[in-house]
Design a binder for these strands. Structure first.
Length: 765
DNA sequence: GACTAGCGTCTGTGG
DNA sequence: GACGCTAGTC
């Protein structure tokens, strides 16, 4: 029995608001937890306290997060706090928990026992296949857009039969949505959004089941509440019993932790408004603000606060810290993305030389595409690094191919898997045979596999050989342990042979080996009873069950922990991926108009504010040192773009910043540029920390050169100019001479314009 | 039916 | 700059 008095170990070292939050009575409460305010600590300590004081058994707790990482972290920390086996508890992501529920009640949910989960790539190819089967013009109905339409509706909890459509085009899309639903049902597959919607409907339509879970979960804890979408919100309401209560038990106490300033997932349906509605819908009694930041030095926090106060409609919260001001925030302007990368890598090497651990250095960017230059520079200087996100292990082509064979073994009706490997490696089954096959499948309302199997007598030997291959794979692997089954499939399908013959196949072969490794690890944990199919242990000797569990693991987990995760390496990731993490040193690169804030985002309603929150998240990742970098030119889509500094840079108080470009280096690089306009870029750092001319001078060749005679004298490509009507912009192109001379200028906010130099009065800035 | 050159699109973020 | 798709060729 654990002493639960306030000064016991469990509650020691909590600050007053944290303490209050942890020990709240069993009623719904909203915790506004600022960045670095000890949010995860409060969540896990709350669970431990509830259990230790016998207010609830581990059985009665449901804790929901968004990412696997957060769920794992919670489990680990909880295990360190109290002697309880957290594996039996319901702690997981929305998707993971819904999957667990659907597995446990697959019949009631109208699903096959071994239903497969489609990741977004699978979903897209399923949609493409659907459009093809229905002879729909995919130019009129772009698959990506349709996918967005379908997922958007599911995230609102709207099925095709209830979707609104006021015009023909939308009516058509709704019809396609319905067809897609039917196709998934036929194939026994479920996409990510479907996991949630299906689970919601299961509970909503099945009263005994609803009564069971509503009575069971007495405390529901939600992490990152600001990221919930409509469906997740409704799911919580239903689960907690604030909607359709089916039991005599009172509603659960919902402990929602969130930060409206860190809401960065509106693009996938998250509604910050859920935080405002929480009070009404969940009978919330208390709001607690966690505003003391334990992570960052003062200057970093001041910058974050200054930035975020520009957003409207905040719930209101100001972070403060006991820590000193610390170092100024370093701002670097590179001439090109390459120059920027060189600066970043140079600094990293110096930091590492001075004793900073590489894993304590994070390199953040707005979009994944930016990682390439940085990676290249890190690689060529031999700096170990690790990229998170981007192409994940289980999303790689070769891994997906191998998994598709395994999926066909587990479920022959999985048409997505069938199409992926029916002719890979090539075995003479072309578009023509497949079209015929799809026709048969369509008319007989059966899966492609069954259609193929029923036709093997007459439909040519290639298809028959494929069916025989899958059949023999199923038989040969039946008695094998999972890793051997995986290896066998890789060999017998001739996947390995295929990649052996490919010039660039080495990486792919290594990934296939890694897949066998992953299967071995998984099998070990499975056999140890640590992993189960639906929360209840399954017979580990049954390959079907192990395989199904492994496949669902592969679709719900990105495979982030695969290969080299523990290596001492610099961390590269998008700002989105960095949420919830912290590092001693953080670089934010690509702080340019159009990139961060992203040009697509600023067009959307509330888009700029979401970008600003994203910047806020990025800044607050840093503990001790923060670098902000931007470049004047950047390669994008294969061509050079001329960029203005991000407006977010202007929104930071100048006194917190130190411009680390030295005038001397820029003079070398840009002969003829006025020093006056550069004065504010002078270093505010002590001399020893300023950049020498040597480093940046080496990149002078990246400077675009364009000299113009006549009216535009002194203007160059890349030059910042001011126009009376359009404001400031950057010259991106020029043509003609004398009175015909025109320049193309990219104005911030206005866009790109061609201007005749004779008439437009452009002033160099 | 397999292979390849050329073209268009993409990179905006995730379970 | 990379990838997927298409048209053209073998």
């Amino acid at each position: 029995m654990i002493d639960s008095s306030p000064d016991s170990g469990l509650l020691a070292n909590l600050n007053p608001p944290q303490h209050q939050a942890v020990t709240l009575p069993a009623r719904s409460a909203l915790i506004l937890a600022g960045a670095g305010s000890g949010k995860t600590r409060v969540l896990t300590t709350r669970i431990a306290w509830l259990i230790a004081t016998h207010q609830v058994s581990p059985h009665g707790i449901l804790a929901v997060t968004f990412t696997n990482k957060a769920a794992k972290e919670m489990v680990t920390r909880l295990g360190a706090l109290i002697p309880v086996n957290p594996r039996g508890m319901w702690i997981g992501t929305f998707h993971g928990l819904c999957n667990r529920l659907l597995r446990a009640h697959y019949k009631d949910a109208g699903l096959p026992q071994l239903f497969q989960i489609l990741d977004s790539a699978d979903q897209l190819s399923a949609i493409k296949r659907l459009l093809k089967n229905l002879n729909v013009d995919d130019e009129k109905f772009p698959p990506r857009e349709l996918m967005h339409f379908i997922n958007g509706h599911k995230e609102q909890g709207i099925r095709a039969n209830r979707a609104e459509a006021w015009d023909d085009y939308t009516r058509r899309r709704v019809a396609l949505y319905a067809e897609y639903e039917a196709q998934c049902q036929r194939e026994g597959v479920v996409d990510f959004a479907e996991l949630l919607l299906r689970c919601y409907e299961l509970l909503s339509h099945n009263e005994p089941l609803r009564a069971h879970y509503q009575a069971r979960f007495r405390h529901i804890l939600v992490d990152e509440f600001q990221d919930t979408n409509r469906l997740q919100y409704a799911w919580l309401k239903l689960m907690a019993g604030f909607e359709q209560r089916a039991t005599d038990a009172p509603p659960a106490a919902v402990f929602a932790v969130g930060d409206d300033d860190q809401s960065i997932y509106a693009f996938r349906g998250a509604e910050v408004g859920n935080m405002r509605e929480f009070e009404r819908d969940f009978a919330q009694e208390t709001v607690i603000r966690l505003e003391q930041n334990y992570r960052s030095h003062g200057n970093i926090l001041d910058a974050a606060n200054a930035l975020i106060t520009r957003n409207r409609d905040r719930l209101g919260k100001t972070l403060w810290t006991d820590a000193g001001a610390g170092e100024p925030i370093r701002v670097y302007e590179g001439m090109s993305d390459l120059d920027e990368a060189r600066f970043v890598v140079d600094e990293i090497r110096e930091l590492v030389r001075d004793g900073t651990e590489r894993s304590q250095i994070a390199l953040l960017y707005r979009s994944n595409a930016q990682s390439r230059v940085l990676e290249h520079e890190l690689f060529s200087h031999g700096v170990p690094y690790r990229v998170y996100g981007g192409l994940r292990f289980f999303e790689r082509q070769e891994v997906k191919h191998a998994l598709a064979y395994l999926r066909l073994i587990a479920n022959p009706d999985d048409d997505t898997a069938f199409m992926r490997v029916v002719n890979f490696p090539t075995r003479g089954i072309g578009a023509r045979s497949l079209e015929a096959l799809q026709g048969v499948a369509h008319t007989t309302n059966s899966s492609l596999y069954n259609a193929a199997a029923s036709l093997t007598g007459k439909a040519g030997t290639a298809v028959a050989a494929f069916i025989r291959l899958v059949e023999s794979l199923r038989q040969e692997t039946a008695g094998l342990p999972l890793p051997e089954a995986v290896e066998h499939v890789i060999e017998r399908s001739t996947l390995r042979q295929h990649y052996l013959g490919e010039k660039e196949g080495q990486d792919r072969l290594e990934n296939l080996d890694e897949l066998i490794n992953a299967a071995a690890n998984f099998d070990r944990e499975f056999a140890g009873g640590e992993i189960t199919l639906d929360g209840t242990p399954v017979n580990g000797d049954d390959l079907g069950a192990v395989l199904a569990a492994f496949l669902q693991h592969a679709s719900l987990e990105a495979g982030d922990h695969q290969a080299g995760a523990e290596e001492e390496a610099v961390q590269l990731m998008t700002v989105h991926a960095a949420k919830g993490l912290e590092f001693d040193v953080v670089f934010i690169s690509g702080l340019e108009q159009g990139l961060f804030p992203h040009e697509n985002a600023v067009m959307e309603e509330g888009g700029l504010e979401e970008e600003r929150r994203l910047m806020y998240v990025a800044i607050t990742r840093a503990r001790k040192r923060l670098y902000l970098a931007h470049a004047q030119t950047r390669m994008l889509h294969g061509q050079t773009r001329y960029c203005l500094p991000s407006k977010f840079l202007e929104e930071l108080p100048e006194e917190l910043l130190a411009r680390v470009n030295s005038v001397a280096s820029r003079e070398t690089a840009y002969p003829g540029w006025g020093v006056s306009s550069q004065s504010k870029w002078n270093s505010a750092l002590p001399r020893s920390e300023g950049r020498g001319a040597g480093m940046t001078g080496a990149t002078a060749s990246a400077t675009p050169a364009f000299a113009q005679e006549g009216p535009g004298k002194g203007l160059r490509i890349g030059q910042s100019v001011k126009h009376a009507k359009f404001g400031t912009g950057v010259i991106v192109a020029a043509e003609g001479r004398g009175s015909d001379a025109r320049v193309q200028v990219n104005f911030s906010g206005v866009g790109v314009k061609w201007l005749a130099l004779e008439y437009a009065k452009l002033e160099p800035v």
